[in-house]
């Protein structure tokens, strides 16, 4: 997995690439903590190049989202790749985040 970030206005755009799993969550959490410590006002995570995301990475995203909310920072996921979008729907986590660029399409196959 690769994490690339850039400043954008008062916030940061982060692009994650490759397989996002438990091997990568420590680096990801550290990255987000650094951004929050720097006083970023908006964090946008681009997931368009992620081909697989496991439950540990989903938990890391949730943790990051909550940490951002506690710090008053806007936290947005953007441009979910197809497999990531499906995984978010199957776990019903598409309801737990602000997602740009991939509208949710209802409950097909979603956990009840």
């Amino acid at each position: 997995m690769q994490i690339n970030g850039e400043r954008h206005d008062n916030g940061h755009r982060i692009a994650v690439t490759g397989r996002f799993d438990a091997h990568e969550t420590t680096e990801f959490r550290g990255y987000i903590e650094d951004l929050l410590a720097q006083g970023s006002r908006r964090i946008r995570i681009d997931l368009s190049k992620v081909n697989f995301i496991d439950s540990s990475a989903l938990a890391a995203l949730l943790h990051a989202s909550r940490a951002a909310a506690n710090a008053g920072v806007e936290f947005v996921l953007a441009d979910l790749s197809d497999p990531v979008r499906v995984i978010f729907e199957l776990t019903a986590l598409d309801q737990a985040f602000t997602i740009e660029g991939a509208a949710t399409s209802g409950p097909v196959g979603q956990l009840a």
């Binding site: 697989f52 439950s55 729907e89 199957l90 776990t91 196959g109």
Partner: peptide
């Protein structure tokens, strides 16, 4: 329980495509 849903999601997306 920790791994099966992401795996199904990835497989279902690729195989359906």
């Amino acid at each position: 329980e920790e791994r099966i849903i992401p795996t199904i999601g990835a497989i279902a997306t690729h195989m359906s495509a």
